[in-house]
């Protein structure tokens, strides 16, 4: 019940606050390159951006609809390989491959959603985990099509005769895509659908009693989040130029869920922050060399134990407390 109360106040925020926060995001995206002095830093920022796009979508599912997915990397992987195979092997225009990939993932998610979202808690976790693993095994095994465990090279993204190439260009592409993703997500949360979604998270039975068609909304948000992942996957494939089944496997799925929960569930900006921190952290932790795994594991465990609400909401709370004092 506390959860509902909290999200309701958030929903009651006036529109101009939403605009303000979007503007803040735009400023951060615009100013950040000044601090990123070489292509390696830009590269990390871009990877963080891709993860953030997926997480913003996944957060709708986990944070607002209250459903777990341990298989979202599967959708990311399908998008990536759709682009890789259609563009590189069959010479499609990249934008067409991206759209076909997204459409395929959307339909697949729609078909899977109904039977799967009937499941609860750990059973849902198991089912989504299974789907993700099956996708990654198919990608790993169909060597002729996908290049097998070592992956495949992907051509660069060309549109209207322009080639998207280099970190600087991609930074802006990803920045804009992230902005759009956040904007879509905030709009969705503030719409009647969003209210219905929050009802789903609170108590499904109660929501149904008052006439919310929970299944329909859950299916919808599942599809939306899967499509977010697919589009990010497609762009990612063109950016890195190399995709491997590891991008679709269980660990990637776990990583994505972790980013959402770590940053703060039911908070779009939390999902973004979670994605950024957990993309940068492993890179920064290479300083610890042999200890990096231990440090990463410990950070995950203890943030979740001591800040079960996630990073952003907890820090927000602390700052608010200090202001009041």
């Amino acid at each position: 019940m506390v959860q509902i109360a909290a999200t309701r106040t958030a929903a009651a925020q006036p529109i101009n606050t939403r605009l303000l926060s979007l503007a803040a995001l735009a400023v951060v995206i615009a100013v950040l390159p000044l601090a990123l002095t070489n292509n390696f830093y830009l590269d990390i920022a871009i990877l963080a951006g891709f993860n953030a796009i997926v997480c913003v979508g996944l957060n709708l599912l986990i944070g607002y609809a209250g459903q777990i997915s341990l298989g979202h990397a599967g959708f990311f992987g399908i998008g990536a390989y759709a682009s890789g195979i259609l563009v590189t092997t069959y010479g499609w225009p990249p934008i067409a491959a991206l759209l076909v990939g997204a459409l395929f993932v959307g339909v697949l998610a729609f078909l899977l959603a109904k039977p799967i979202l009937r499941l609860k808690g750990h059973y849902l976790a198991m089912a989504t985990l299974g789907i993700g693993i099956i996708v990654s095994i198919v990608l790993r095994t169909e060597t002729g099509l996908t290049g097998g465990p070592d992956g495949m090279m992907v051509d660069s993204f060309k549109i209207f005769g322009l080639e998207l190439y280099g970190e600087k260009t991609w930074y802006w592409v990803v920045g804009v895509m992230l902005f759009i993703a956040v904007w879509l997500s905030l709009n969705l949360i503030d719409s009647p659908v969003g209210r219905a979604l929050r009802a789903v998270h609170g108590s499904e039975v109660a929501a149904e009693v008052v006439g919310v068609d929970t299944t329909r909304y859950k299916v919808m948000v599942f599809v939306v989040s899967a499509v977010f992942a697919s589009v990010a996957g497609s762009l990612f494939a063109h950016y890195t130029g190399l995709i491997t089944p590891a991008k679709a496997d269980f660990f990637k799925s776990i990583e994505l869920v972790t980013m959402v929960v770590f940053g703060g569930m039911a908070s779009t900006f939390g999902a973004v922050i979670g994605a950024v921190v957990l993309t940068v952290l492993p890179q920064a932790l290479t300083v610890f060399q042999d200890y990096s795994q231990i440090v990463l594991g410990a950070i995950l465990m203890f943030t979740m134990v001591f800040m079960p609400k996630g990073l952003l909401p907890t820090i927000e709370g602390l700052i608010a407390q200090r202001r009041r004092a």
């Binding site: 606050t17 803040a24 951060v28 952003l312 608010a320």
Partner: peptide, 10 residues
């Protein structure tokens, strides 16, 4: 204020 908090936290 909530937004400020968010930005500060970020």
């Amino acid at each position: 204020k909530r937004l400020l908090n968010t930005v500060a936290a970020a």
